[in-house]
Simulated assay, not measured.
Amino acid sequence: LVGGETAEMPGMYEGEDYDLAGFCVGVVEKSGIIDGSSVRIGDALVGIGSSGPHSNGYSLIRKIIDHSGQALDSEFGDSTLGETLLAPTRIYVKPVLNIIKQFQVNALAHITGGGLLENIPRVLPRNTRAVIDSDSWQRPAIFDWLQEQGNVEAREMYRTFNCGIGMVMAVSAEQADSIVDMLHQHGETAMVIGRIEAGDDDADRVVISDL
C-alpha cells in the first residue's frame, strides 16, 4: 500500500468492527510538484472557506453533544444542529487546479485533522512561520457553539478543527488578490488570512492572532 490511512474513531469501532478505507494514487511531473520548497518570506496566505468540520474532530464533537444535552434536531441557524454538523465536506480540487494553471502556487495545506496548527507547518521551509489574522474571516457559528458548549480552549480549537478554513495556499503577495477574485468566481469563499515571515524552527511555526 502506498497511501491511505486507518482512521481513529473511538466509540465507532468496537469488538470485531473494522475500518475499510480506499485511496487513489496520482502521477505528476516532477517540475509540477508543489511541496512548499518555493515558499518565500513575504508570501501571502490565502484561505478557502470550509463548509463545517469536514469530517474531523467528531470524537470530540460527540462528547460535546452529550455534554450539552442539545437534541440534534434542534434549530441551528437555517437548519438543525445535526444537519449543520453533517454538512458535506467541501472539495477544492477543481478551483485549486484552475488556480495552479494560471498562477504560481508555492504551497498547499489541506486543513484536516490537526487543524491550522498542525497542517500548515508541513509545507513550511526551515526558519519560516505562518502568521495568521483570525479576524480576516468569519468563523462559522457551529465552531463557536462547539467551543462554548465544550468549554474548549482556543488553541485546542485550532488544533482539532479547521475553524472555517479548509485549505490554505501560499502565493506571492502580488498575486494574492487576483487569486482570491478567481476563487470567488468559482463560488468559493476566500480571503487573505496571513503571511509568511522569518521564524525559528524551535518556536511556534503557526502564530494566530487570538492565541
Rank of each mutant, 00 (worst) to 15 (best):
A141T: 11
W145T: 03
Y158S: 04
Q149N: 10
K94S: 14
V152K: 11
L60Y: 07
R159Q: 13
S68K: 11
S68M: 07
N119Q: 10
I99C: 09
N162I: 01
H54E: 15
E75C: 14
R62F: 09
A130C: 07
P95V: 05
Q70P: 06
I111F: 02
E148A: 15
A107T: 10
T128W: 07
S136P: 01
E148Q: 15
G150M: 13
M157E: 01
C163R: 00
L108M: 15
W137C: 00
A44S: 14
L72D: 08
V96A: 08
L97W: 05
I120Y: 04
A87Y: 15
K63T: 07
A109G: 09
K101A: 12
A154Y: 01
A141D: 14
D135T: 00
E153H: 13
V152E: 07
G52T: 11
S136R: 01
G114Q: 09
L116P: 01
A107Q: 08
V131L: 04
R126H: 15
M157N: 01
S79P: 11
A154H: 02
D133N: 00
L116T: 02
E153L: 13
S50L: 03
Y58P: 01
L45I: 03
N119C: 08
R90V: 10
E118M: 12
G69E: 05
A130Q: 02
L117R: 08
H54V: 07
H110V: 04
P125V: 14
L117G: 05
G47E: 01
A44T: 03
V123H: 06
W145F: 11
G47I: 00
G77A: 08
V123Q: 09
L86K: 12
D144F: 08
I64A: 01
I61N: 03
E153R: 12
I142P: 02
A130K: 01
V96W: 03
H54D: 13
S51N: 14
D144M: 07
G166V: 03
H67S: 14
D133R: 00
A87K: 15
A107F: 08
G49Y: 01
E83C: 11
M157S: 02
W145Q: 08
D133G: 00
N151P: 05
